[in-house]
Computed example of a mutant assay.
Amino acid sequence: MCGRFTQIQSREAWLSALEGQAERSIAWDEQPIGRYNVAPGSNVLLLNYRDEALHLDPVFWGYAPPWWHKAPLINARVETAAESKMFRPLWQHGRAVVMADGWYEWKRDGAKKQPYYIYQRQHQPLFFAAIGHAPYARQQEKEGFVIVTAASDRGMVDLHDRRPLVLEAQAVSEWLHPDTSTERARELAEEAAMDPQQFHWHPVSRDVGSPRHQQPDLVEEIADPLC
């Protein structure tokens, strides 16, 4: 799953990786975003396509339609999202992307849980596939977005059996475009997902368990992990 991630760099670090894919309606800003511990229930800068241009909107991380009487959901499984009652409309009309540097996952060993920070080996910007209630410029309360997840494999499964579906940069525009069919979006989720071998991870401070903590040292490797 994905329950915490980082948006540290400036928006330009991500948008430069998409240069030439689509027009943007996004103000130039080289100021680092500086969020070291993004938690569900907060507003997140979400990349989406409307009016023939890329937009960034602050959107609630979580999705609970009016008929859903439980806590908002934060993830959707790629294997079932396109066909499920909950997520099918979002897959068809609300595809979006979360810009990230990396994410946190907790490894369990009995009663102990040790957080790890996971990132691309060359620290490249990441693009998490997301779906939500569009149009994002007119957001309804608690009808925000969820991050699409896929099954972990290889070494990453030792941390958790799920991971965010990270799209290669060259696939982002097609994923976002409203002309992309439901079936083609399914194909992109399979064909354009970043290979788990591209990722590295290390243990980090257990302070990341509280969203009150936002300091830069949250992503630094520690020498004394619990497990």
Score class of each variant (00 low, 15 high):
206 R>F: 13
177 H>I: 12
159 L>T: 03
198 Q>P: 05
188 L>N: 03
145 F>T: 04
127 F>D: 01
107 K>Q: 06
209 G>Q: 09
169 A>V: 05
179 D>L: 00
157 V>Y: 06
91 W>A: 06
139 Q>A: 00
122 Q>C: 09
168 E>A: 04
107 K>T: 07
184 R>F: 09
136 Y>H: 02
129 A>S: 13
167 L>E: 05
178 P>H: 12
114 Q>C: 11
152 S>V: 07
97 V>E: 12
117 Y>A: 07
165 L>N: 09
98 V>I: 11
169 A>F: 03
101 D>G: 03
164 P>A: 10
166 V>G: 01
128 F>P: 09
132 G>W: 00
176 L>F: 12
183 E>M: 15
178 P>K: 12
167 L>G: 04
120 Q>N: 11
100 A>P: 02
145 F>V: 02
199 F>W: 10
106 W>S: 11
205 S>T: 10
109 D>W: 15
209 G>M: 05
167 L>Y: 05
150 A>G: 13
89 P>N: 05
179 D>A: 07
139 Q>P: 00
94 G>K: 00
210 S>V: 07
119 Y>F: 02
175 W>P: 02
189 A>I: 11
115 P>K: 01
121 R>A: 14
95 R>K: 08
106 W>V: 09
180 T>N: 06
167 L>I: 03
209 G>S: 07
109 D>T: 15
101 D>Y: 00
176 L>T: 05
99 M>F: 13
184 R>G: 10
92 Q>A: 08
93 H>W: 08
137 A>N: 15
162 R>E: 05
180 T>M: 10
210 S>I: 07
185 A>F: 05
208 V>W: 01
98 V>C: 08
189 A>E: 02
115 P>H: 08
146 V>S: 03
126 L>A: 08
90 L>M: 02
103 W>G: 09
123 H>E: 13
145 F>S: 02
104 Y>T: 03
105 E>C: 12
102 G>I: 00
173 S>K: 04
171 A>N: 06
94 G>E: 02
154 R>A: 12
109 D>P: 15
153 D>K: 09
122 Q>F: 11
181 S>P: 14
141 E>S: 10
142 K>V: 10
211 P>F: 11
114 Q>Y: 13
118 I>R: 08
155 G>P: 13
113 K>D: 15
108 R>P: 15
210 S>K: 08
146 V>T: 01
157 V>F: 05
143 E>G: 02
208 V>N: 03
204 V>Y: 07
201 W>C: 13
191 E>K: 01
192 A>M: 02
130 A>C: 05
191 E>S: 01
208 V>L: 06
